[in-house]
Amino acid sequence: MTRLVDGPFPAWMITASIAATILTMIPVATVGLNHHLTMQGYFPLMRYSPTLRFTVFGAMSYTVFSVIGVLISLRSVASYVNFSQVSIAYTHLGLYAFFTMTIFGSMYYIVPRLVGREWRYGSLIKLHFWASAYGIGLMTLMLLAGGFLQGANLENPALPFSESIETVLPYLRGRSLAGILLTVSHFIFAYHFGLMLLGLGRTSTVPTFLNPVEAETSGGH
């Protein structure tokens, strides 16, 4: 119901849904705290472990996603952002920044164990991570910023409707840029994954680290 605040429904349904959304803060805080305390002291390992990089990014995005979900469901905010790009940003945060990134991380862990080879290029993993991270970060920022401006213009009856569209268009171009970054990252991953499927991964007892030299000196993980 978050997206339908003030829609044609009995008000109690919307109010109950908003209250429920706010209550989701309890499990979200629990999960976030759990993740954070688990990672505490181990954050430097993100320099080496591909899996950790992706999953920590995903776990943090989950908290951001949930907090934004609560914010945009509040009536006063929703009246501005209801029909703007903000809801798209919210969806992307949940589906990509949280879910997809976590699954990427899991694949970096699972696939070597399934095919019996290690990932071939640490550099490709790095490239994949940064292209995805910057891509989804840029996309979310663009959609959030553009969406808030669009919503503010929509709620300003002094401005013609077309103004709200023209406001958001530059942000949508920025979003296209982010989309290109994501596409690049997907192709990199697909290529790397293909190599693994073809059995072209490294035969090694040591997993592929991102910064192998540093990993060795610090004892690896």
């Binding site: 997206r3 339908l4 829609g7 044609p8 209801n82 029909f83 703007s84 790009q85 809801s87 798209i88 929509l154 409707f161 709200s164 569209i165 958001v168």
Partner: peptide
Amino acid sequence: FLGKMRMGQ
């Protein structure tokens, strides 16, 4: 078709 986007009127 309640819709959730107003890129059009």
